[in-house]
Amino acid sequence: MTTPTPHIEIEGAPATDPGLLAALMTGFGHFTAMQVRDGRVKGLDLHLDRLDRATRELFGRELDGKHVRTLIAGALATSGQRNASVRVYVYPDVRIAVTVAAPAPDGPGAPQRLTTVEYWRPAPHIKHLGGFGQSYHRAAAQRAGFDEAVLTSPYGEIAEGAITNIAFWDGTSVVWPSAPCLRGIAMTLLEPRLESVRRPVTLADLAGYRAAFVTNSRSIAAVTAIDEVTFAVDEELMGRVYSAYDSVEWDEL
Rank of each mutant, 00 (worst) to 15 (best):
G39H: 10
P4E: 02
E195K: 14
E236N: 12
T70K: 15
R240A: 07
V201N: 03
P103K: 11
R95G: 00
G27P: 04
L194T: 05
Y136W: 14
D45R: 15
M34K: 09
E148C: 03
E236V: 14
T26L: 10
A123M: 15
I8D: 00
M34N: 09
K127P: 02
L46E: 09
T70A: 15
F132I: 13
E118A: 09
R61P: 07
L206W: 03
S153F: 06
I163F: 13
I220Y: 01
L76C: 06
V223L: 04
R210I: 09
L206C: 01
R138M: 03
N83W: 03
Q81V: 09
D106V: 14
V86T: 09
T188C: 03
A232I: 01
T202C: 13
S135P: 00
R53Q: 12
L182I: 07
A211I: 05
P6H: 02
E235D: 14
L189Q: 11
A244W: 05
T78M: 12
A179V: 07
D64V: 04
D38G: 13
P6W: 04
S153H: 04
V174L: 08
A212L: 04
D49P: 02
T230A: 14
E11N: 15
G65S: 14
T215K: 01
D49N: 12
Y89V: 03
A97M: 15
R61F: 00
A123I: 14
K66N: 14
D147M: 03
H137S: 07
S243W: 00
P108Q: 10
F31P: 02
T115W: 08
D234K: 02
D38V: 11
K66L: 13
S243M: 11
T164Q: 09
V233N: 01
F146W: 12
G131R: 14
R50I: 05
G208V: 02
L76D: 04
G131L: 15
V223R: 01
T55Q: 09
A207K: 14
L182T: 08
A75D: 06
E157R: 13
E148M: 01
A101T: 09
S85M: 14
L237C: 00
T172Q: 15
M25G: 13
A212M: 06
F146H: 13
D38L: 12
G65D: 07
Y91G: 00
D246K: 04
L44H: 00
A149E: 06
D93F: 11
W176C: 01
R87P: 04
R183H: 12
G109P: 01
H47A: 08
D52R: 06
H137V: 13
E235L: 10
F213C: 10
A33M: 12
G107K: 01
V150A: 07
V117C: 11
L48P: 07
G184L: 04
T26P: 10
A144W: 01
P192Y: 10
T230Q: 12
V248T: 03
A211D: 06
G65M: 08
T2M: 13
H125R: 12
H125M: 06
T215M: 05
H128R: 15
Y136P: 01
R53V: 03
P4Q: 11
T26M: 03
A221H: 05
E9A: 14
S247I: 08
V36C: 03
